[in-house]
């Protein structure tokens, strides 16, 4: 193995290891983002899939039965989701935007580059 290959190998191993060490919070937020993205895909997919499923099936009994089990499933999922959201929500209680907005220093103060320069020039 030449030096380049071994460099690549070592770097990739380190990068893989860094992914193993991710915060639980980050992992959870990534999963939530993924679910949102997947559901954002639905409309087109649904529009295309919907007509196909029911028109070609032409079977309203099956349709009905499917919808009932779907509704049940959905109920269970909704419950699970609400519980999860509740737990996540409680985690975020402390760092609210409300307190940032309510503090004396306005949000612009943190973002104004001119203020940075001003601070720098007037530091001690």
């Amino acid at each position: 193995m030449n030096q380049q290959e071994s460099t690549v190998k070592l770097v990739v191993q380190a990068l893989d290891a860094s992914v193993e060490n991710l915060d639980d919070d980050v992992i959870r937020r990534l999963a939530t983002a993924r679910e949102r993205a997947v559901s954002a895909m639905q409309p087109q997919w649904q529009a295309a899939g919907h007509a196909g499923v029911f028109h070609s099936l032409g079977n309203y009994v099956l349709h009905h039965r499917l919808m009932t089990s779907a509704a049940l499933l959905l109920g269970a999922l909704a419950l699970g989701f609400i519980v999860t959201q509740h737990v996540i929500g409680q985690h975020q209680l402390e760092q609210g935007d409300a307190f940032l907005l309510g503090s004396e220093l306005p949000p612009e103060a943190y973002l104004d580059k001119g203020f940075d320069t001003w601070l720098q020039q007037n530091a001690r």
Partner: peptide, 19 residues
């Protein structure tokens, strides 16, 4: 197959509706 597909669809979009 189609029924399974629909089920999958429901499964995947479930969270969005619940949301």
């Amino acid at each position: 197959k189609r029924a399974l597909g629909l089920l999958l669809l429901v499964l995947l979009s479930g969270p969005a509706w619940a949301e």
